[in-house]
Write a protein that binds this DNA or RNA. Structure first.
Lengths: 184, 184
DNA sequence: TTAAACTTTCAATAATTTCTGAAACTTTAA
DNA sequence: TTAAAGTTTCAGAAATTATTGAAAGTTTAA
């Protein structure tokens, strides 16, 4: 399967960015190619198009499945597995966020919770525990917020994002209306 | 400088998480230790406490400065450089977000913009360009939103985050009040 | 069954990233 | 000046991570 220069450069870019996005080059390239392809692709298609060994493709697909980013498709009368992106761009981005939050924040939250509970052994540790509590609270606020945002419908979320910092105005407006409403 | 077990385990955790957070083990440990320390620490303090070579500390500090996460402090009558976190936890988290956004999204946005402008060479490329446009729009919306959030004061932002998905209610409330207000 | 078609696993190797330590460089007090 | 106190650089070594490819495993049609 031959790629046009534009598609190829996108796919290679995904490979280069792979490690920054939390996976590796192979995984990045494969995801990039699946996104660009209207038809689902087999492991052999991926292996040949990207010049990647069959075994590496298999491991990469497994990893992409653990991120819930690709799904398997079967064609009638063909026993090969074909792969395609598991949902639209929006869903995929959501899954990446969620998975990275799990990997990048959850372990730290656990450690901090455990470290904060018991009494400080000395003044130095008391300071450290205060800082840990600060970090914990920030991470927790972000985690809770992120999961609430993810539970919103894409439409609501888009409205909110398009509103941007204008949301402040709306919050002030609400306060004003409520205050003028109750004559206390 | 000897660390209590709790502080040590936090610092080592930061080292292990380092690469997931966008830097490496040494950088993670150093940032962790600086966060836990009430006093600024010198390069030698860091090197000895963490058993890291002097050269490695120097490179790590340079990297942390490029992320704007540590600042240099000079004590009167002492020509050593001392290092401390550059701001409170909130500011630090902001800088990490911003820096990562730059590294993880901006290059892709540039590539996508460039790929989308010219005419598709064939049907296959037309499909790919549509997808690229979708990805571009999503990344751009997120980028713009993130930078607007970062421009908000920490208090407003905390209010907004604490409100969580309840923000939807406020948006609906606004629409209702405005609608009932103008009798069109 | 069985053998063809396909997938997965994993030990060995390659590639990449990180770390060390010695040498070069800079600054400052005397 | 100069030498002591400090910092930075960078080539090579060590550690980590990614990749291959051959062998083992699985599924299905006949």
């Amino acid at each position: 399967m031959l790629l046009t220069p534009k598609i190829e450069s996108f796919v290679m870019h995904c490979g280069e960015m792979g490690s920054r996005w939390g996976f590796n080059r192979t995984i990045g390239q494969i995801m990039g190619l699946l996104l660009m392809s209207e038809q689902p692709l087999s492991a052999v298609d991926l292996s040949e198009t990207l010049n990647i060994s069959r075994g590496n493709v298999s491991m990469a697909i497994k990893e992409l499945q653990s991120w819930r980013l690709v799904s398997v498709i079967h064609k009638p009368g063909d026993r090969k597995d074909y792969y395609a992106p598991a949902g639209d761009i929006w869903e995929l981005a959501n899954r990446v966020f969620e998975e990275r939050r799990k990997r990048e924040m959850d372990p730290t939250l656990s450690l901090l919770r455990a470290s904060i509970i018991d009494e400080p052994a000395n003044a130095e540790e008391a300071y450290a525990q205060d800082k840990m509590a600060e970090i914990h609270d920030l991470l927790e606020t972000i985690t809770v917020w992120a999961s609430e945002l993810q539970s919103m419908s894409p439409e609501k979320l888009t409205t909110l994002m398009k509103l941007g910092s204008g949301v402040v105005k709306v919050l002030e407006f609400k306060d004003k209306v409520l205050k003028s409403g109750n004559g206390k």
